[in-house]
Amino acid sequence: LVRYRTISKIPQITLNFVDLKGDPFLASPTSDREIIAPKIKERTHNVTEKVTQVLSLGADVLPEYKLQAPRIHRWTILHYSPFKAVWDWLILLLVIYTAVFTPYSAAFLLKETEEGPPATECGYACQPLAVVDLIVDIMFIVDILINFRTTYVNANEEVVSHPGRIAVHYFKGWFLIDMVAAIPFDLLIFGSGSEELIGLLKTARLLRLVRVARKLDRYSEYGAAVLFLLMCTFALIAHWLACIWYAIGNMEQPHMDSRIGWLHNLGDQIGKPYNSSGLGGPSIKDKYVTALYFTFSSLTSVGFGNVSPNTNSEKIFSICVMLIGSLMYASIFGNVSAIIQRLYSGTARYHTQMLRVREFIRFHQIPNPLRQRLEEYFQHAWSYTNGIDMNAVLKGFPECLQADICLHLNRSLLQHCKPFRGATKGCLRALAMKFKTTHAPPGDTLVHAGDLLTALYFISRGSIEILRGDVVVAILGKNDIFGEPLNLYARPGKSNGDVRALTYCDLHKIHR
């Protein structure tokens, strides 16, 4: 019993810090008490220290592992850092350059016999395009090294910054494609005289377009951006097909006994025919423009016929181009109408809503002055909100995010209106959640004399007048207030005048 009563005193000691020596009952000389009392004092002292730490809000209350900052290894790049964003855009520009100039170089340097010394005699450094290609190869190699040090988000939505895990993730992902696209074939085969082989191998750079397509997928929600990307894709495919079309004609031209190829026909049409040795002929500019003209006309199913396939190889390629053109029509131009419709969806919704308003007016036989006010209010409210119901949009977000959005939407009023000066951010967040926005066209009466005042109004834009009878008592403008002081009276009061809008007004109100 003594032991039980001794232990039962522990909660009292913990909360009230009572010393055991003052209790005459606990001072009985028993061996059990002498053993338990020192333990009680020690526990009391420890609990006292913990309570003191909690009340003082000291940093040592938290466990040590929670006080440590997340460790980022040296030379690790955050995937959302500004440097990584700028670097990704730079790589994107280099990939676009590669997609345009690599097929052009591979096709127009394929057994090209233009006048001038061969590239091997001039030297590697004197070729501007080769120098640019070398810079692109170096940048792609540097990009691989950067990807080995860039964080990523795993399946659990955690940012991984450990170098080993980053390397394994990159090896399992895009490393092989990036490595093949970054191989400097110019340096590996330079001086061997195989410019045709170098041009063909350099087309491996186009593998990076797969990554670019995935990154550009984030802009699919913007109709104008999608339309622009589709047109660029169409032009890029036409450019690639033009390079292939020229390569076919250029390879067949020296081996044909009869002059029936499209390059021969082009030379005869523009007065620059090929001679018996295969030299001469149109310039590279004429060849490229004509090839691009043929691919565009074939892809769009126009086909004027002034550039036509004559050999079997050219006919087979033309059939493939027609098939590609039909697929592009289905996948690209078939979506253009939907994209344009999405661009004008706001206008369509406006006309639909206006039609419903006019049908309501016609069905209920609203008189002319009231009908005009109804239409003007709808037009003004639509121009202010673009038909978007803010309350319906915010309803799907958590309250903390709703408060931040409301604070942002009402920031101008909260910053410049005098009653809100000096208020804490928590108070402003709470008030912003209570605001209701209303609009009024010129001549609209917001409050009639004798109406119950259940709200306090803040003028965000425009001006109003307060009338008693036919006498203008006051004219209020931006950041002015009218209405009933909230919670100042037990019952809502009545208006002693009319409140009429002089201009288009936007008002925020808080109800009782």
Score class of each variant (00 low, 15 high):
Leu67Gln: 05
Leu67Ala: 04
Gln68Met: 15
Ala69Ile: 08
Pro70Tyr: 04
Leu78Glu: 09
Ser81Leu: 01
Ser81Glu: 06
Ser81Thr: 07
Phe83Ala: 11
Val86Pro: 01
Trp87Gln: 01
Asp88Arg: 01
Asp88Cys: 02
Trp89Lys: 01
Trp89Phe: 02
Leu90Lys: 01
Leu90Cys: 07
Ile91Leu: 01
Ile91Phe: 01
Leu92Asn: 01
Leu92Phe: 01
Leu93Cys: 01
Ile96Ser: 01
Ile96Asp: 01
Thr98Arg: 03
Thr98Pro: 01
Ala99Gln: 01
Ala99Phe: 01
Thr102Ile: 08
Thr102Asp: 02
Pro103Ala: 01
Tyr104Trp: 01
Ser105Cys: 03
Ser105Leu: 01
Ala106Gly: 01
Lys111Arg: 06
Thr113Lys: 13
Glu114Phe: 11
Glu114Gln: 15
Gly116Cys: 05
Gly116Tyr: 07
Gly116Leu: 06
Pro117His: 07
Ala119Ile: 07
Gly123Ile: 05
Tyr124Gly: 01
Cys126Trp: 01
Gln127Ala: 02
Ala130Arg: 12
Asp133Met: 01
Leu134Lys: 05
Leu134Asp: 03
Asp137Ile: 01
Asp137Asn: 04
Asp137Cys: 02
Asp137Gly: 09
Ile138Arg: 01
Met139Thr: 05
Phe140Val: 01
Phe140Ile: 01
Asp143Gln: 01
Ile144Met: 14
Leu145Met: 15
Leu145Asn: 01
Leu145Glu: 01
Thr150Val: 06
Thr150Ile: 01
Glu157Met: 15
Glu157His: 04
Val159Asp: 01
Ser161Phe: 10
His162Trp: 07
His162Leu: 11
Pro163Arg: 01
Pro163Gly: 09
Pro163Asp: 01
Arg165Pro: 05
His169Glu: 08
Gly173Asp: 04
Gly173Trp: 03
Phe175Thr: 01
Phe175Pro: 01
Leu176Gln: 03
Leu176Val: 12
Ile177Gly: 01
Asp178Asn: 01
Met179Asn: 01
Ala181Pro: 03
Ala181Ser: 11
Ala181His: 03
Ala182Met: 09
Phe185Gly: 06
Leu187Ala: 09
Leu187Pro: 09
Leu188Ser: 10
Phe190Ser: 13
Phe190Met: 12
Ser192Asp: 09
Gly193Ile: 10
Ser194Gln: 14
Glu196Ala: 14
Glu196Leu: 10
Glu196Gly: 15
Ile198Tyr: 10
Leu201Ile: 07
Leu201Asn: 01
Lys202Tyr: 01
Thr203Trp: 04
Thr203Gly: 05
Arg205Trp: 01
Arg205Asp: 01
Leu206Ile: 05
Leu206Trp: 01
Arg208Gln: 09
Leu209Val: 09
Val210His: 11
Val210Met: 09
Val212Arg: 03
Ala213Ile: 05
Lys215Pro: 01
Leu216Ser: 04
Arg218Glu: 05
Arg218Asp: 03
Arg218Gly: 05
Arg218Lys: 11
Tyr219Gly: 03
Tyr219Ala: 09
Ser220Arg: 05
Glu221Tyr: 05
Glu221Phe: 03
Gly223Glu: 14
Ala225Glu: 04
Val226Ser: 15
Val226Trp: 09
Leu227Glu: 01
Leu229Phe: 11
Leu230Pro: 03
Leu230Tyr: 10
Cys232Arg: 01
Cys232Pro: 01
Cys232Gly: 12
Cys232Met: 11
Ala235His: 01
Leu236Val: 04
Ile237Gly: 01
Ile237Thr: 09
Ile237Pro: 01
Ile237Met: 13
Trp240Tyr: 01
Leu241Phe: 05
Leu241Ile: 01
Ala242Lys: 01
Ala242Tyr: 01
Ala242Ser: 01
Ile244Phe: 01
Ile244Lys: 01
Ile244Met: 05
Trp245Glu: 01
Tyr246His: 01
Asn250Tyr: 13
Asn250Ala: 14
Met251Ala: 13
Glu252Asn: 04
Glu252Ala: 01
Gln253Asp: 15
Gln253Glu: 11
Met256Ala: 14
Asp257Val: 05
Arg259Ile: 03
Ile260His: 15
Ile260Gln: 04
Leu263Ser: 01
Leu263Pro: 01
Asn265Gly: 01
Gln269Leu: 01
Gln269Cys: 02
Ile270Leu: 08
Lys272Asn: 01
Lys272Gln: 01
Asn275Pro: 01
Ser276Pro: 05
Ser276Lys: 15
Ser277Ile: 04
Ser277Leu: 05
Ser277Gly: 04
Gly278Ala: 03
Gly278Glu: 01
Gly278Gln: 03
Gly278Pro: 01
Leu279Glu: 12
Gly281His: 01
Gly281Met: 01
Pro282Asp: 01
Ile284His: 01
Ile284Arg: 05
Asp286Ile: 01
Lys287Asn: 01
Lys287Ser: 08
Tyr288Ala: 01
Tyr288Leu: 01
Val289Asp: 01
Thr290Glu: 01
Leu292Tyr: 01
Phe296His: 01
Phe296Ser: 01
Phe296Asp: 01
Ser297Met: 03
Ser297Leu: 01
Ser297Asp: 11
Ser298Ala: 14
Ser298Met: 14
Ser298Lys: 03
Leu299Val: 01
Ser301Trp: 01
Gly303Arg: 01
Gly303Thr: 03
Ser308Asp: 01
Pro309Thr: 01
Thr311Asp: 01
Thr311Val: 01
Ser313Gly: 04
Glu314Met: 01
Met322Gln: 04
Gly325Pro: 01
Gly325Cys: 01
Ser326Val: 07
Met328Arg: 03
Tyr329His: 15
Ile332Ser: 03
Phe333Asn: 04
Phe333Cys: 04
Asn335Met: 03
Asn335Ile: 03
Val336Lys: 01
Ser337Val: 05
Gln341Arg: 04
Gln341Ser: 10
Gln341Gly: 10
Leu343Asp: 12
Ser345Glu: 10
Ser345Arg: 06
Ser345Ala: 09
Arg349Phe: 07
Arg349Ser: 10
Arg349Thr: 11
Tyr350Thr: 01
Gln353His: 10
Leu355Gly: 13
Arg356Lys: 15
Val357Leu: 07
Glu359Ala: 05
Glu359Met: 03
Glu359Lys: 04
Ile361Leu: 09
Ile361Tyr: 01
Arg362Met: 01
Phe363Lys: 06
Phe363Trp: 08
Ile366Lys: 01
Pro367His: 08
Leu370Met: 04
Leu370Gln: 01
Gln372Cys: 06
Gln372Met: 13
Gln372Val: 15
Arg373Ile: 01
Glu375Ala: 03
Glu375Ser: 04
Tyr377His: 07
Phe378Thr: 13
Gln379Pro: 02
His380Val: 08
His380Asp: 15
His380Gly: 08
His380Leu: 05
Ala381Ser: 10
Ser383Arg: 07
Ser383Lys: 04
Thr385Asp: 07
Ile388Thr: 06
Met390Trp: 04
Val393Trp: 08
Leu394Gln: 04
Gly396Met: 10
Gly396Ile: 07
Phe397Cys: 05
Phe397Ser: 02
Phe397Gly: 03
Pro398Gly: 03
Cys400Gly: 10
Cys400Thr: 06
Leu401Gly: 02
Asp404Arg: 02
Asp404Thr: 01
Ile405Gly: 02
Ile405Asp: 01
Cys406Pro: 01
Leu409Gln: 09
Asn410Cys: 08
Ser412Val: 09
Ser412Thr: 13
Leu413His: 01
Leu413Gly: 01
Leu414Arg: 03
Leu414Thr: 02
Leu414Phe: 14
Leu414Val: 07
His416Arg: 07
Lys418Thr: 05
Lys418Cys: 04
Pro419Asn: 06
Pro419His: 12
Pro419Trp: 04
Arg421Leu: 08
Arg421Pro: 03
Ala423Phe: 04
Ala423Ser: 03
Gly426Leu: 02
Gly426Phe: 03
Gly426Val: 02
Cys427Ala: 09
Arg429Gln: 01
Arg429Leu: 03
Ala430Glu: 11
Met433Thr: 09
Lys436Tyr: 11
Thr437Lys: 11
Thr437Asn: 04
Thr437Tyr: 12
Thr438Gly: 04
Thr438Cys: 12
Ala440Ser: 13
Pro441Glu: 06
Pro442Ala: 08
Pro442Tyr: 01
Gly443Leu: 03
Gly443Phe: 01
Asp444Phe: 07
Asp444Arg: 07
Asp444Ser: 10
Thr445Phe: 13
Thr445Arg: 04
Thr445Ala: 07
Ala449Lys: 12
